[in-house]
Nucleic acid binder design. Structure first.
Length: 243
DNA sequence: GCGACAG
DNA sequence: ATCTTGTCGC
């Protein structure tokens, strides 16, 4: 199976992990915002990226929190066909950054990167919980993750906050654009008939059409994609077992 | 039981 | 994000 672990890119965007996770990891909001400007500039948000048929494995990423500041990042690699689990990785740590709206990435990234480093398999795509470019500085968690890892990455969020959208049609597969100040930053996607839509936005290395189509494949039965559901479950379980 | 939806 | 109670419904 997979061999290299997260240190090298696969052609498209070179990973910028060292530059952003090393000594210059931000400690203040101002520094974090400055990092986001750079991350945004480094992101590849246009490319078609891999089509769903070309995506053999997808990793879902999620973070679970405890009261005391402990957090557990979980990564679950699924085979796209059949949605079977290929590999799992968790990493327990402490929040290194306070929760600040718009800066969630800095809270979750260190542990998420550690969890991804724990994978022997290098997934073709990453799906994370939260925003990509549907973000004030077009630099949500999915953008950071895509740039840092060099793996095509996008976000699927549950709640619409800072963008406008029309309700998509009732049927599974219906979409409608998400816009911020008239600029399209993603789409609302109905993953099951009649359930609340999820909000897909690109991170880096994959375009919105492919991200949307892949999300639909990853969500055959529930509102959220299986990647997120599995990662969420794994993270919670690990957190609970931490006692 | 598990998920959607309260709110 | 987390915790909790409760109702409806497959």
């Amino acid at each position: 199976m997979g061999t290299d672990t997260g240190a090298h890119g696969t052609g498209r965007g070179e990973p910028q992990g060292r530059a952003l996770t090393g000594h210059d990891w931000p400690t203040t909001e101002a520094e974090a915002v400055a990092v986001q400007e750079r991350v945004r500039a480094a992101a590849d948000t246009m490319g078609p990226g891999p089509a769903p048929e070309e995506v053999r494995t997808v990793a879902g990423v999620d973070v679970a929190y405890a009261d005391d500041g402990t957090l557990v990042a979980a990564a679950v690699v699924l085979e796209t066909a059949g949605l079977t689990v290929v590999e799992e990785s968790v990493h327990a740590g402490r929040a290194q950054f306070p929760y600040v709206p718009g800066l969630l990435a800095f809270r979750e990234l260190p542990s998420v990167m550690a969890a991804l480093d724990g994978l022997a398999h290098r997934p073709d795509v990453l799906v994370c919980d939260g925003y990509g470019i549907a973000h004030p500085r077009r630099a949500g968690l999915a953008v950071h993750l895509g740039v840092l890892t060099g793996i095509p990455c996008y976000g699927v969020a549950k709640t619409p906050f800072l963008f406008d959208y029309e309700q998509p049609g009732f049927d599974r597969g219906a979409t409608s654009p998400l816009t911020i100040d008239g600029e399209q930053v993603g789409c609302a996607l109905r993953t099951q008939d009649g359930v609340k839509p999820v909000f897909v936005s690109v991170g880096s290395g994959i375009g919105l059409p492919h991200a949307t189509a892949l999300t639909l494949r990853l969500a055959p039965a529930y509102r959220q994609p299986e990647t997120t559901r599995r990662a969420d479950r794994l993270g919670r379980a690990r957190l609970a077992s931490l006692t």
